[in-house]
């Protein structure tokens, strides 16, 4: 289903959910939960947005049933740790590549995905200062290295 324009800002989190459907369904579930919560704040009144959000809710309810034997789904405190660990793993991989001077698409994507998953952590409560800083750094690095590779410059 096409994403209505007012909900555009959740498109990257929904894409991350799709990419993790098989690899890590817990990540996919919480990305969609974040998208749902954010989408409801953005626009849940216009018919096209409401229709989209109802479908997303259907999907979340189905996923919750399918994953009912996972503690990361039934206990949000476990889910919080799962998403945080996953985000930091992505961040550390990209940071290690960066410090080793290995600049490539995969590490850019890892920095960006880490920043999206740090957004997702907000479904569990306020982000820690450390996570806010990691998110800012990861997003900036992803943009900076992407632009360098595009223009043929070597990132510093």
């Amino acid at each position: 289903m096409a994403l209505p324009a007012p909900l555009r800002s959740i498109q990257h989190h929904l894409r991350t959910a799709n990419e993790h459907e098989k690899r890590d369904p817990v990540v996919a579930y919480y990305c969609r939960l974040y998208a749902m919560q954010t989408g409801m704040k953005l626009d849940s009144k216009t018919p096209e947005c409401r229709k989209f959000l109802v479908k997303l809710m259907d999907q979340l309810e189905t996923m919750k049933k399918e994953l009912s034997d996972s503690d990361s789904i039934t206990q949000e405190v476990v889910g919080n740790a799962h998403i945080e660990n996953y985000a930091l793993k992505m961040f550390l991989y990209a940071d290690n590549e960066d410090r080793g001077g290995r600049f490539h698409k995969n590490m850019i994507k890892s920095f960006y995905t880490a920043s999206l998953l740090l957004d997702v952590l907000s479904v569990f409560g306020e982000l820690s200062e450390e996570n806010i800083q990691h998110r800012k750094y990861a997003r900036w690095k992803a943009t900076y290295i992407h632009n360098c590779l595009k223009s043929g410059e070597t990132p510093q």
Partner: peptide, 27 residues
């Protein structure tokens, strides 16, 4: 008509909020 449609929208919105609360109820 506009108050009726806004009332329908608000009811559907509440329903969505309720579903979200139920979804997040810890088992």
């Amino acid at each position: 008509t506009s108050s009726l449609s806004s009332s329908v929208a608000s009811t559907e919105q509440d329903e969505l909020s309720q579903r979200l609360s139920r979804l997040r109820d810890q088992v």
